[in-house]
């Protein structure tokens, strides 16, 4: 069969002169749509700020004591997070906003406070790591926004249009579970645009051992095999062949966990292994999680 001839015929398809106009319109429309998304995200942040004010009031009653660096040029606050377990709790260590011509960043950095371990300096190490991660994220978000701002102006956008874009970044945390044994939480950052700039770090504090635990601590020596087997079974349960939405192993899909694979412990005490968006499945599936029965 002569595909060269078929391809020649294919390449003879005439290009209408409207094409470039329609492509330009699509580029402009995509730009406008982004503005609307940003407005929605801003509303979400407003809600969060309201909550923060309520929580800030609580600190007066509870009288938390944690060292806070107050030398920042930005307004800083400290307040108690929602009440949690008896031995350890997560508190907001720093809460502030950075606003410059490029981006608005709302920051709530948590710190782990263990009533007994505090003097042994263990949470300090964890807290240092959390702080460093958050600060690196904030720096990255500022750089990204600055680059985007410059490119926006360089390609003919006005400062007023830029302000309408209202680029915001958020650094925040959520407690995922808490009981007498464990306190699990996630610290995350996201940027309203470009939205792929997202980071999530999971931590599980062992109330008794006074340390951040690993998967091995909770599943035992054979944790890799136990987790892999469970995850493979759960992936297979989604369907076989092309019905299965996950990437196949040879196309970058799941092969094995390792000691670095993020996880948290849920209310049942089971570890839940987390894979970032796009890691083992199409982006439409978002972050994928697998509970591993102990």
């Amino acid at each position: 069969m002569d595909f060269d001839k078929a391809r020649e015929e294919y390449e003879m398809i005439p290009i209408p002169k409207e094409l470039s106009m329609r492509v330009d319109k699509a580029i402009k429309d995509a730009q406008n749509n982004r503005k609307q998304i940003d407005i929605k995200k801003e509303r979400k942040i407003m809600k969060k700020v309201t909550k923060t004010v309520a929580a800030a009031a609580a600190v007066v009653l509870l009288g938390t004591t944690i060292g806070v660096n107050t030398s920042e040029a930005f307004a800083e606050d400290i307040y108690n997070a929602p009440i949690i377990g008896s031995f350890a709790e997560l508190v907001t260590f720093r809460s502030y906003s950075i606003s410059n011509e490029d981006v608005l960043i709302n920051v709530d950095i948590p710190a782990l406070q263990d009533i007994e371990a505090d003097n042994e300096g263990l949470p300090a190490e964890v807290n240092k790591e959390i702080l460093a991660k958050c600060e690196a994220y904030i720096e990255g978000a500022q750089e990204l926004a600055k680059g985007y701002h410059e490119a926006f102006i360089a390609t003919g956008g006005t400062e007023k249009e830029w302000i309408d874009h209202n680029i915001t970044a958020t650094v925040d945390y959520d407690v995922l579970s808490q009981n007498d044994e464990y306190l699990s939480f996630v610290v995350y950052g996201w940027l309203s645009y470009p939205s792929f700039y997202e980071e999530r770090s999971y931590y599980t504090w062992d109330m008794n051992k006074k340390e951040i635990i690993t998967l091995e601590d909770i599943l035992g020596e054979d944790y890799i095999n136990i987790a892999n087997e469970s995850i493979k079974t759960q992936i297979a349960a989604y369907g076989s062949g092309t019905d299965n939405p996950f990437f196949s192993p040879d196309m970058g899909g799941f092969t094995t966990i390792d000691e670095e694979t993020p996880f948290y412990v849920n209310e049942k005490g089971n570890p839940v292994i987390c894979f970032a968006k796009y890691e083992i499945a199409p982006g439409s599936m978002g972050e994928v999680q697998f509970e591993i029965e102990k």
Partner: peptide, 27 residues
């Protein structure tokens, strides 16, 4: 455009397909 046209055999539909694809990609 050519690929879209090879599916749709019609100018307007093919322009729509390209426009939609560009919009979706950038969004």
């Amino acid at each position: 455009y050519r690929l879209a046209y090879s599916y749709l055999h019609n100018k307007e539909n093919s322009l729509d397909a390209v426009q939609n694809a560009v919009y979706q990609a950038l969004s």
